[in-house]
Simulated scan of single mutants.
Amino acid sequence: MMLEHVQAQTHHARRGALRHAFTYGVDYVLSDLGDAAPWLISRNRFNLWSIWDRHHGGPRGDGRGVGWFREVLLRRGFAQEGAQLLLLTQPSFLWFHFNPVSFWIAMVDGRPRAFVAEVNNTFGHRHCYFCAHEDFGPIAKGDRLVSEKMMHVSPFQSVNGQYHFDFGIDETEIDIRISYKNGDQGVVATLSGSRRPASSRSLLWAALRRPLGALRVLGLIHFEAVILFAKRAPFLKRQPAPELLISDSQNFVSADK
């Protein structure tokens, strides 16, 4: 099992007249979803940290793991021979799971050729954004892959506008930037950190340094929402779930369309 521990930072900054920004440390793992792993993390089995197929790949709570990603790539004509399929995600901590965004990544010769941003909101909804160049050429840092926003994520932002994905990953670093643009409004979100082999020591340190994992993440989301509410940011009621589970970026034309 290829399993790396990315001790990362995430930064969010609101665009528009009402300014708000925050930066937090987060723990991600990058995995090919094999079976062997350090003893403090398991796949499809309870542990201090766990990666569960049911949480990823497909409808929320009814995922099929990497098999779903393989089908997504197959339907779009991606040649998987020689490709490494990876999941970048925040693992579950004990019984707790919540992940605002995970990434399914298809790598060839150490470079990403396609990815799916698996986005979850706090209302129980999910939408997946498939991103690739039309010829499945390498995705380089600085490339802009554009997707229409399809799902209500924050009660302080509408379901309009576009996501601009700048997806940077190499042999040593992850540097992802997502810019949500809706006129002069929006949010810039980043995820950056060094790739290091996961070990029981690093995973234990993560549990002590940033305790409660997913529960901590959920608490921080609501904490920042309280601050925005106090700043009198416009608040939108809960919106319907998106009709589709997955949509393609504007840079890519699906073969099944």
Score class of each variant (00 low, 15 high):
L236C: 01
V226M: 06
G161V: 02
R216F: 11
L212V: 02
V217M: 06
D166S: 06
A114R: 07
A214Q: 01
D135R: 08
S199H: 07
W205N: 15
F165I: 09
R177A: 09
K149D: 00
L145F: 12
G213N: 03
E148A: 13
L208I: 09
R209D: 04
F223A: 11
S247V: 10
S200W: 13
A114K: 06
I221F: 12
V101K: 01
L218F: 15
R113M: 05
A241T: 04
L204K: 04
A206Q: 14
A233I: 09
I176M: 03
E118G: 05
A225R: 03
G193V: 13
A207C: 09
V119G: 04
W205F: 13
E118T: 04
R232I: 03
S202N: 12
P242Y: 07
I246T: 14
V188K: 03
I227Q: 10
F167T: 00
A230L: 15
F229P: 02
Q157A: 13
E118I: 07
R232Q: 14
G183A: 09
A241P: 01
G186Y: 03
L191G: 06
S200E: 12
L204Y: 10
P211C: 06
S154G: 05
P112E: 12
S147H: 01
I221E: 11
Y163N: 01
A114G: 13
R238I: 11
P234Q: 02
C128A: 13
A241W: 05
I227M: 07
K231E: 02
Q185S: 12
L228P: 04
L204E: 05
I169V: 11
R238A: 13
R111E: 14
Q157G: 01
S249C: 14
R111C: 06
D248K: 06
T172D: 11
E134W: 05
K141D: 09
A230S: 05
I174M: 04
I105R: 00
A117P: 00
V101N: 00
V101F: 01
S102I: 06
K141V: 07
S202I: 12
G193P: 06
A233M: 15
G137D: 09
